[in-house]
Amino acid sequence: MIRYLHQLGSAPRFYSFSTSLLPWLSAACIVLLLAGLYGGLVMAPTDYQQGDSYRIIYIHVPSAWMSLFIYMVMAAAGVVGLVWHIKLAEIISISSAPIGAAFAFLALVTGSLWGKPMWGAWWVWDARLTSELLLLFLYLGVIALYGAIEDKRNASRAAAILALVGVVNIPIIHYSVEWWNTLHQGPTVTKFDAPSIHVSMLVPLLLMALAFKLYYAIAVLLRARCELLVRERNSAWAAELVTERVKGKS
């Protein structure tokens, strides 16, 4: 097992492994996405309070979950890179940042488009919204810091430390709706007792959440593969890779 992981950690192994994994992940992601969209937009009944505007939940909540999940992955991979100097962990960490930023952005924008008809305002300085905005800025900070340092090993280390400091924001976002009783509604799914959402609405939400997880796996592998190729552009395996590619074409 350890040996297997070690082999996977080597650059050419990871490259070919991710390349072979991508079509399967994409197929599974598309199936889940279509099922979730059909369930959420067509099958699920109209909400008795919010009408059909609530259907934004099927992208808003999975995006918000992913923005938190990806931050934790980014910070954890960053720590692994800091402590054990594993190049692949550094690459996974920094490749996660733009995807996490995209999900934080989507959580804010879809939330805004839901807030306008329901609350009457595009934006309020509510605790949940403000802490999510801070999360977006943390992502952008990590990306900017990484880009500003020429040596990519040093850049990874600096970005990982910033990501680690920002972890303090994660529980704040999660508990914000309980600590500060402002406009954003409380959790409907992750309550410890039974979730306060009907099963015909819950199933599509979970399908979408799963589809978004797979999407992240695809997007992070695509970015990691690319970053790996940039860092190892002068290696023997990269040269071999392009030679084989040319042969395959002719």
Binding site: T46, A102, V109, T110, L113, P117, A219, L222, R225, C226
Partner: peptide, 28 residues
């Protein structure tokens, strides 16, 4: 029509689609 919320619902879904596609196509 989305029960009168068409603008909000479809804008949200449209922006999500665009952002998710960009994040796949750019690295490719």
């Amino acid at each position: 029509h989305m029960g009168g919320y068409a603008f909000y619902v479809w804008t949200a879904y449209g922006i999500t689609l665009v952002v998710l596609l960009i994040n796949i196509l750019l690295p490719m």
